[in-house]
Computed example of a mutant assay.
Amino acid sequence: MSNVIQLKSTGGFTRMDNDLYKALIRADLSGRELRVALAIHKLTAGFNKEAVKVAALYISKMMYEDEEKAVSERANVSRAINSLIRQRVLFRDGGSRDPITFLPVNEWKIDPKSTVLKSTHCVENTPSTVSKITHIKDINTNTNPNGLVVVAAASTDEDLESEPEQQGTQEPVQPAPAKADRIPYSKIQEIYNAVCGEILPKCLKLSTKRKTLIKGCWNLEINGVHPFRNGEFWTAYFTDCLTNKHWTGDNDRGWTADIEFLTRQDKVLKVLEAL
């Protein structure tokens, strides 16, 4: 039996420029970045368009058949889009509602990759290639009381760990309740400062008001999912906020947003609905 598929029976084709095709093969992109790039190509060249207005959720639905999975991965797709824009593979003049297109291959600035060793359960050192941090600003790391390194924003889809709120000095230490009941305010503060700290005012202290606003984000439910209980979602959200030029100071007053403004429920929904 032949394993050759006749082209005429595939149901159509999407043309691709040879230089772009070779460049995507050679580019040291992450798997998600490559999939997003191919989706953008499908939506542009596949429909004879130079650029396309497309939401991150739409691309996520192209990548995942399961509706719930597509919704939960929307923030990661948005992050991949921003990473491709920063590496000059894609171009978008404005915010998330503006058209997006490919830049010429000779303008691409692909991040260099680094190789690290990780130990497997068999105590065998295996080389593992990881991408350079694709956030706008480098993310700091801290060490928790157990000596474990805690990254301000998770580099995987791992949920944020909850942290107990401060109790009175005379109160006995209580066992930590479920994650949904305790909010890792300090880690969210670190993510904000890492992503926005050199463009927007740094968050030096979490007041009661700020904690209340963060709690509103933490408990926000969309299609049965709590997206803000994931470290990568906070990183992607704050990154998307920086694409709003008015919020970053491009206005007649020189005003800039801060963590209180960005965690207001109306502003959160404005950003999410634009993805």
Rank of each mutant, 00 (worst) to 15 (best):
P201G: 01
T115M: 12
G197Q: 00
T141Y: 05
L242G: 01
W247M: 08
L103M: 01
E68K: 14
E67F: 09
L7T: 14
I40R: 03
F228S: 04
T156F: 05
I40S: 00
D138Y: 09
E260D: 15
K53Y: 06
W234Q: 02
T14V: 13
N144G: 00
N193D: 06
A37Q: 04
N244W: 10
R86K: 10
N219E: 13
G46L: 07
I133E: 10
T235D: 15
T141R: 04
N230T: 08
A257K: 03
L204I: 12
K209M: 10
G197Y: 05
N76L: 14
K61G: 01
A236H: 06
G216R: 15
A39G: 04
T263M: 09
T141L: 04
L275K: 13
S207L: 06
L38M: 13
E198G: 07
N251T: 02
T115W: 11
H246Q: 14
L20S: 02
H246M: 13
C217N: 08
S83F: 05
K202C: 09
V71L: 09
D250I: 08
L29R: 10
C122I: 08
Y64M: 01
E161T: 05
P227C: 03
E65I: 12
G216Q: 15
S9T: 14
V4L: 13
K8C: 12
L204K: 13
G94D: 01
R229L: 05
N230M: 10
D240H: 11
T263A: 05
A178Q: 08
D17H: 03
K118D: 08
E68D: 04
M62W: 08
G231A: 03
K267R: 15
S30P: 09
R35T: 11
A176H: 13
L84F: 01
I59Y: 00
S60H: 02
V54H: 04
I5Y: 11
I136A: 09
I133G: 09
S186L: 14
E232A: 15
N142G: 12
S72Q: 07
A39M: 04
N146D: 06
L90W: 01
T169Q: 13
W255E: 06
T208Y: 11
T141A: 09
S186F: 14
M63I: 14
K211P: 02
R35N: 14
L160E: 03
D138N: 10
A55K: 15
A37K: 02
G254K: 02
S114H: 12
C196M: 05
V151M: 09
Y237L: 05
R26E: 15
E65T: 11
S128F: 15
I191A: 06
L24T: 00
K211A: 05
H135E: 12
S155D: 14
R229Y: 01
D17K: 05
A75Y: 09
K118P: 02
L117V: 11
E190Y: 08
